[in-house]
Amino acid sequence: MKMAEQATEKPNRWLVVPGEVVTEERVKLGPGVYVRDGKVVAKTVGLAEVKNGMARVIPLEGKYVPKVGDSVIGIIVDVKIPGYDVDINSPYTAFLPKDAVEGEVDYGDVIVATVKYVDEVRNALLENASVLKGGELIHIIPSRVPRVIGKNASMITLLKNKTGAAILVGANGRIWIHGGRVNLAKEAIFKIEREAHTSGLTDRITKFLDDNISQEEESDEDAE
């Protein structure tokens, strides 16, 4: 293994698959990599990056695993005495105590909440929940959520402005869209999801939105 004062920074992120070597230099280990025979190796399909003395792989696929502080969009799947079982589209379940949400909550309701705590078997405890009424719910691969939000929320702001829709993005890949041009927002988000691994995305999405904005569309508000 090479020792270097500063790890060689590779100019771009590049696509890797499990087992591929990311770097042979001595670096800090970020997520998505492990060490084998002194080499840093990718664990998942994703974009590898060596920057600021750290190597990591940003996954392009994979399920959501709850993390403290994440904002998630869940669906109430069971009503119990102390609170509610919430589906957060993860192999792990989430629980919302009664006092962590305002008002009446029923089976099938959609909520946005924050992950307060994650136990050793990864089950999540939620807090600060609000019920979301109406709107449409879609699901994208959780690891691509950062692209939908964008640097300094640039992408999500673009989407909201151009479509006039309220958009809430959960770290668990669930996205709630309400009002405005719902279908256009949906299509733009799926496009971002598909092209998450490419660059120049903000420009392409801007163009996509502008090209399609003239299309007549039923707002879902009319449907209520």
């Binding site: 589906d87 589209n89 699901h139 669930r174 449907a223 209520e224």
Partner: peptide, 26 residues
Amino acid sequence: MNDFTWEFMKDRVRKLAFKGLRIDRR
């Protein structure tokens, strides 16, 4: 999409169907 997301979409599908519209615009 998991089972619960489909369930939630039922509402939206029904609302559109009331106006003869479909969720994928067919």
